[in-house]
């Protein structure tokens, strides 16, 4: 790791503020799932991945958090972020292909990124290409049959160069995952396919990094909160969709900075 805990917290705070600003400026929703996934992407990009590694965002509706993670690494600029969702942008609401080395594949329809990541890992294993593949899925995404097809295939081929992270925030588009189509206990179900499963605090950046670095070929179930860091959004399904009003945005900034002025420190 090249970054210590204090620095990481500073990065995470700046990233959370920038994510909120980007969504507010663009008047876009999907902020809840972005806030639940942001820490995992920051952890991977700052503490785990090397230039040989690849990251696939299977839950493509958290594209904003991915753009912010890349911004926090200096791989996207403020000018880039200002185009989020705008006409002529490459920073669409779900990742589009062919414009950034750190976005290997277009995603957005759930249940696609994971099997593509499995293919990438298999290709690397066959060709003895260095580097690992990391993939982040949502929890509702596991209602897609293709996820289980990919899980069977991954387990069968024993691909140790793939790490799968699941953003287990418990909320999906129109209800809780428990109420819509329960997959409890998801960890046990995945484990029954012969894959190692660990439960991790999805907002503990160093904990995520330790789990990812020490457990190749594992699934990390990330216990997360939708809307993490903004009290009125946390665990609220409506923040899957709502854009923030000006007053809501101001309140969110205050909560994260701890200051009325919105200054970071």
């Amino acid at each position: 790791m090249t970054i210590d805990g204090d620095e990481l917290q500073t990065v995470a705070k700046r990233a959370r503020l920038r994510l909120l600003k980007m969504h507010f400026d663009a008047k876009m929703g999907h902020i809840g799932g972005n806030l639940s996934a942001l820490d995992a992407m920051l952890s991977l990009h700052h503490c785990v991945m090397t230039s040989d590694d690849a990251f696939v965002l299977s839950k493509g509706h958290s594209a904003g958090a991915l753009y912010i993670a890349l911004w926090s690494k200096g791989l996207l600029s403020d000018e880039d972020l200002e185009t989020f969702h705008a006409d002529g942008t490459q920073l669409a609401g779900h990742p589009v292909p062919g414009w950034h080395d750190s976005i290997p594949i277009a995603t957005g329809s759930l249940g696609h990124g994971f099997p593509v990541a499995v293919g990438m890992a298999l290709a690397r294993q066959l060709r003895t290409t260095p580097g690992r593949v990391f993939c982040l899925t949502s929890d509702g995404e596991w209602q897609e049959g293709a996820m289980w097809e990919a899980l069977i295939f991954w387990s069968h081929h024993k691909l140790q160069n793939l790490t799968l992270l699941v953003d287990l925030n418990g909320l999906q588009g129109f209800g809780t995952t428990h109420d819509v189509a329960s997959m409890a206990d998801l960890g046990a179900r995945i484990r029954s396919f012969g894959v190692q499963v660990l439960e991790v605090d999805g907002h503990d950046l160093l904990g995520i990094a330790r789990a990812a670095n020490n457990n190749p070929g594992a699934v990390l179930l990330l216990r997360t909160k939708k809307g993490k860091g903004v009290s009125y959004m946390e665990d609220k399904m409506e923040w899957h969709y709502h854009p923030m009003s000006a007053s809501q945005y101001s309140l969110a900034v205050v909560e994260i900075t701890g200051s009325e002025s919105g200054n970071e420190s």
Binding site: P104, I105, G111, H112, P115, V116, A117, V118, G119, M120, A121, L122, A123, R124, L126, R127, T129, G145, A146, E149, A150, I152, F153, H156
Partner: peptide, 21 residues
Amino acid sequence: NAGVAEQNMVSVAAGMAREGC
């Protein structure tokens, strides 16, 4: 042999193509 799982097979192939296969 990707088994009886054509959706996965096609996505896996896409991932492999992305890696230069």
